[in-house]
Design a binder for these strands. Sequence first.
DNA 1: TCGAATTTGTGCGTATGTATC
DNA 2: GGATACATACGCACAAATTCG
Lengths: 255, 255
Amino acid sequence: MDQPSYARIAADLRAKIVRGDLAPGVRLPARHELADEYRAAEGVVRQATEVLVREGMLVSRPGAGMFVRQRPQRRSLVRSWFRERQAGSPFAQQMEEQGRHGTWAYRSDTMQAPPEVRERLGLAVPDGDQHDVMRTAYVFTSADDEQPWMLSTSWEPLSLTKGTSIAFPEGGPHAGKGVTHRMAVVGVDVDAWDEEVWARTATREEAQQLGIGAGSIVMVAERSYFAGERVVEVADIVVPAESTKLVYNGPVGDS
Amino acid sequence: MDQPSYARIAADLRAKIVRGDLAPGVRLPARHELADEYRAAEGVVRQATEVLVREGMLVSRPGAGMFVRQRPQRRSLVRSWFRERQAGSPFAQQMEEQGRHGTWAYRSDTMQAPPEVRERLGLAVPDGDQHDVMRTAYVFTSADDEQPWMLSTSWEPLSLTKGTSIAFPEGGPHAGKGVTHRMAVVGVDVDAWDEEVWARTATREEAQQLGIGAGSIVMVAERSYFAGERVVEVADIVVPAESTKLVYNGPVGDS
DNA sequence: TCGAATTTGTGCGTATGTATC
DNA sequence: GGATACATACGCACAAATTCG
């Protein structure tokens, strides 16, 4: 009894799944049957299956049963590539290069930057409630399964873009052209990016938008675009960890 | 009763924590007291606190109580930097550049590559149980809190290194010099890397090694080093998501 | 040093609500 | 509509870790 009983049951079920003994899509025996089989209380079996649901091995459908997850291969979201092509190209192009299709919805608004964003963009403390950034929120949907799979929000300082033809990222003559191109229009030379990645549990709203279980894991990538030392755009990306990988690559130099 | 009772309690406690009403380090009232306060069963309170522990808002110490987490600032683990210096430098150097100190323990063994590793390294299916890779497992410990905070495992094909002075990454004249330098010794020119990042729940063993709660979230970074098209080393990194950020950066070119 | 009280982790059994088939 | 299955809730018991007098 080194490990608790629910962990032992979870481990056994997990092993059966990875061995293929329980195939993807297969329905597990009901709780009371498993409890019988493992000679444990129903509550204990429940703890075990909870663990596996959180791990993404099982999907539970109330009233129907618990099913072994069909493992969709993880989507690779390439966030940098030094060989194939340069960074900064717009989303649609990136997706096509990866052989994926999809659509996205967006919404742009001017607003007052929340404190974190203000700090990341290096903005001054605003007067009163004056708007100082353009926020654009995206929801990306895969054409394959018509399922939203990525949320993204970008902030650009109005001090750079206000009154210009690029004020709305997805409007005007330069719509959808990517930050680099758009910023060049107003004489800003975007030359570097920085991305900070971490993971956390999804908020209720994110879980709903992404069609994942409450409390599922999401990865967050916070990207900043630089023109010299100046941050000219920040963009946050949220993707489900169970179905997405973030991919980075680069050269190894020794000069 | 729009949302279940345990979610309501969790939300209330969460709000108290983010408002600072419950300060970091403070001990929560015991289960039965909270149950009393919220007029709910102990089991329900337990569900609520479990959620918050998984979110990293609470830390529970059996026998002692549940405490509001002291939010340590996230460690930044820089995984690429094109401006400051070149990639491929060994761990200690990276850490020092970030103003951090620490120690690491390691263990190297030859073994037969597990299937995933074999595939990533592009190795042939081995004869019988012949060893074909050198595996080195690291545990990195911070000097600040003497707490392990990163696990890493690297695999190198024996076909490249067997019988050479670099066969053991942490032994011989080139110990701790980094992949690029070491591989150069045997005439292999490492020129690129690729890293795939995702997140999942920690295994029991990982949670124990990293001193985090069972079922906490970890980030996994799978790095491959290339010499041309050939993969010459793969290295997996595991860090707690609650205390670590992975940082990438790069240039934006438009030629 | 030791023991008592407290607190969490785990396990058991039951009842009710709600979604699915 | 009825049967089945999961989600939630309640209450109790005990072991292990911690705290404190």
